[in-house]
């Protein structure tokens, strides 16, 4: 069955030699971003799903180069964050 992983630990993913993976330079527990950033969560999901269609070599790891500092800065501007945090 075709599978795709979303990882924040590239070397762990490399060690277990998965068929295909999307790597994000983000902290553990935040594979799909931050709370209430639906657009970002959706972007990660779609990038991973896209690999199911596009990758051709076992061990393919695609980088999604979104800086964590930018994610956090943008998250602080969300009104939902202000209500819940």
């Amino acid at each position: 069955m075709p599978t795709v992983s979303v990882t924040v630990a590239r070397e762990v993913t490399e060690a277990i030699k998965v068929p295909r993976a999307l790597f994000l330079p983000w902290p553990m527990g935040h594979h799909f971003g931050v709370p209430f950033r639906r657009d970002l969560q959706r972007r990660v999901v779609l990038a991973a799903l896209g690999l199911l269609e596009s990758s051709e070599q076992p061990g393919t790891i695609l980088d999604l180069p979104i800086k964590w500092a930018d994610v956090r800065r943008e998250a602080k501007t969300l009104p939902e964050q202000g209500r819940k945090l």
Binding site: V34, P35, F36, V45
Partner: peptide, 18 residues
């Protein structure tokens, strides 16, 4: 793993609603 953000929005770690 740190759960603070996922406790606020489960989709951060388990994107079920997306």
């Amino acid at each position: 793993y740190p759960r603070d953000d996922a406790d606020l929005d489960i989709n951060v770690i388990f994107p079920i609603e997306r």
